[in-house]
Every structure is written in C-alpha cells, then in structure tokens.
Write a protein that binds this DNA or RNA. Structure first.
Lengths: 165, 165
DNA sequence: CTTTTTGCAAATTCTTTGCAGCCCA
DNA sequence: TGGGCTGCAAAGAATTTGCAAAAAG
C-alpha cells in the first residue's frame, strides 16, 4: 500500500471517530495502524499477535471491538473463506476492487480484478429491479496447477493454514 | 424443485451412503428429505424446526452431522451471508448454477445467473497460472429499490431475518 | 471531572464430540 | 450380533459483554 492511500485511510478513520464521538486511544491507534499496514486477509489472532509485538498488554476484546469499528467505518471488510475464522481485509477505496481465487487444496489465495465482470454485475443488478450495488464478493474455488497434479506447477503456498492453537 | 431432480439428488445421496459404508436411518432420511424439499438457504435452526414437526426427538447434533455428510457428498453447499449463522443450500447439479444479490437493508436474497460472468471466470482462472475452477461464489450486496428510497419500490421481504432466540 | 475505553474473565452463540444405549444391515 | 447412529450433555471455538480500574478529552 502506498503512503497516499495510507494517509487517506487514516483520515477516514479519524473522521469516523470524530463523527461518532469516539476517543482516540493508544490501543486503537496501534491496532488500526497495524491493520492498515498488513496486506491481504488477517484473522483476529494474526492481528493480535502483531499488535502484541509492540504492546503485549492488548487484549482480544479490544481487537474485536476495534475491528468492528473499522468495519462500521467502512475501512475493513469481514470475510469468511473456507474455515470458521473471520478474516478482515482493508477496504481501500482508492485501490481497484479485487476478487479472490482460492485453491481448495493448499488454501493459497490469489487476488485478481476483472473490469468486465464488474460491469456485468452492474447490469445484472439493473435488470433485477434496479438494485444499487454497494459491494460484492466473488470467490473462485479450484485447484492450483500443483494440486491438479502438475509436478512443477505453480503453488505459492503449499502448506495449509494454521489455526488458533 | 421438480421431482426429476429430486429423484436424482436422492439417488446421489444413496450412492454416497453406499460408497462410504454408511447406514440409512430414519433420522437421516427425514433430515435429507426435509432439506431437499426446502427452497433457498436454510440455517440449521430452521431445518431442525422443520424436522421436529415430524419427529420432535431429533437432536441438533444429528442435523449437524447429516448436513456435514450432505456437504461432503456434494449435495449441500454451506454459505455465510451477513450474519454469523451458516446456511446451507441444495447443490443441484441439474439446475443452473446461480449467484446471489442481497439487500443490505432488508436482507432479501435474490438468485440470478449470468452466463457471461461464468465464462469470464474461467478465463480469469486460465490467465492466473491455469487453475481449474471447481466452484465459485458471487454475492452482490446493495440496496433494493425500496431501501433506496423509492416509495413503491420492489422489496420482496421487508422484514429482517430473525436469529435463533 | 466526566465519559469512554480497556483488560480480564465470564457469558453467549454456534458447532463438535464422548458416550451409553438404540437401530440398521 | 456388531458396528454404526442417536440424543444428550459436556466440550470447544469464536465472539461478545459486564465491570472495575485506567485513560482521554
């Protein structure tokens, strides 16, 4: 993430806090900063682990509460992939929207974007009575080349996710 | 669901049981029958409630266990929409695949299908190293006409979902 | 000072599991 | 008969909440 969009996100965050009459605290700032700097899809545990590197006294509840605020403020998007953990992703309006391609064997997640698909989605919404699409979620599940059996096929992440232990 | 596809699903189910060395039981049959007859997206609670109309002694665990089998057998697809409940949907290979348009205000869910989008998905997968797409999930979230403010706009389901009470 | 926020632990919610007895093959 | 199946209750896992102490404005 470039620093421009990072700055924009921080600004949206402070605006959200102000509008909602919420306070700025050390923990919140640390969690938000850590979250915004992370790429990809973070689980609460992963985020908490990162946060605790800097401040070991932060608790689960605070991370949950802060991510809820981030989601309400439109800065984070909750997601459910294969497992039961909720993962969060930075909702960066400046960046292009992207979707996900997930290997059901090795669980690697590849992001992609496709303008044509986005356009077709708006058309569908118009046909179906005139919905106004706010956001969408497209997930393709399949087998990456290696999982399909190609010996030297590409596989970015041949191990499975580890869960909270 | 027409009776042909219902029969086909029941056949897939018995094949699955046989292949896996599992037994046919009253409860399983009742749960599967009830599930296959339901349209749309069922939560465990809704399904259990229906099942108990016919046999009040069926327990949660059995429904969970049976839905897990249905999912493994490819007859049910688990889904997460807005709330934290897992919903299941009949995976009817005979029917066309469909996707979902969800109103974030009233939570109505409209199903649709679009061939062009499906085609583009396969293209994307090919470009991204040659994945083999097994299934996909496309969810459009937005505002239905009424939620957008149109007084007489279409809104199939103006109430919110009720959760387990 | 007042109002929020935090961290902890306890409570909730959803889902899975252990086990004694029941039922299908 | 014998191994799978069920229902119950207890365990687990993820998330939320109550509350007293701490921090922010």
């Amino acid at each position: 993430m470039d620093s421009d969009s990072h700055r924009a996100l921080k600004h949206r965050w402070s605006e959200y806090l102000r509008r909602s009459g919420l306070k700025t605290t050390q923990q919140r700032e640390l969690i938000v900063e850590t979250f915004l700097r992370l790429e990809g899809h973070v689980s609460i545990d992963e985020l908490l682990a990162r946060v605790r590197r800097r401040n070991p006294r932060v608790g689960y509840a605070t991370v949950y509460r802060t991510l809820k605020l981030l989601a309400e403020g439109g800065l984070a998007q909750p997601r459910h992939f294969g497992d039961q953990q909720t993962r969060f992703e930075v909702a960066d309006e400046g960046a292009h929207h992207h979707d996900h391609l997930i290997c059901t064997e090795c669980n690697q997640i590849i992001e992609f974007e496709n303008e044509q698909i986005e356009r077709l989605q708006d058309e569908v919404a118009k046909e179906l009575g005139g919905f106004k699409i706010v956001r969408h979620k497209l997930e393709l599940y399949g087998l990456c080349p290696r999982a399909r059996g190609e010996q030297n096929g590409y596989c970015a992440q041949p191990e499975r996710w580890t869960r909270r232990s």
